[in-house]
Amino acid sequence: MEREAFLARLAGARPGPDLPSLDDLPQAPTELRPGEDRYERFRHEVEAASGACERVSAGHEGLAVAAFLAGAGATRVALASDLGVHREPVHAALVALGITPVSYDDLVAERAELGALHATVTGASVLVAATGSLVTSALAGRAAALIAPIHVCVASEDRLASGLAEALHALPDASLVAFQSGPSRTADIEKKLILGMHGPGSTLVVVVRSLASDAPTPA
């Protein structure tokens, strides 16, 4: 059909309500409650979704990522280009543990190698405290965060948005933006929860303390 004819058929609606203002959003499961700590809620939600979460001081993110991946026996690891300042420490720590990571960008055209990856490491544009979500985008590669059985995300604590409403205002400008919350899952067979259906079955978020909140870590 032509556009105009198609739109014309939709005319003649009964009047509907005005578009409500969302300035004063009611309390929702996707928003923080007053007084809640962003990181603590984030960690709680990630763990509730069967993911892992860890907070480290700046400079220690490489070790956290490398220890997790080495512990999982991952050897084929790809780093996405959106890691930013975290890329160098992550790369160095992996090499120190005998894992030589490749660049996701270099790999992406090779379908067979993409399918053989053990783990990918990406950044995140936004973390969402109330839902335990991280936001990746086509800037890292559309498939980067879910092509391998393990996904690790490294992001600074100042990327933490309180809830979904705030996060929607902080999205990156990319052709695809995606929220993800814990491992891929399905319950289609007799309602039994299975992790890792299409995307990763194991996920870790490493939250790097921002300088302002970089209090000494207890030993």
Partner: peptide, 13 residues
């Protein structure tokens, strides 16, 4: 609260 994946696709590569 939210599904594991909420994807916003806004165009080709």
């Amino acid at each position: 609260r939210i599904t594991t994946y909420l994807t916003l696709a806004s165009g080709p590569r």
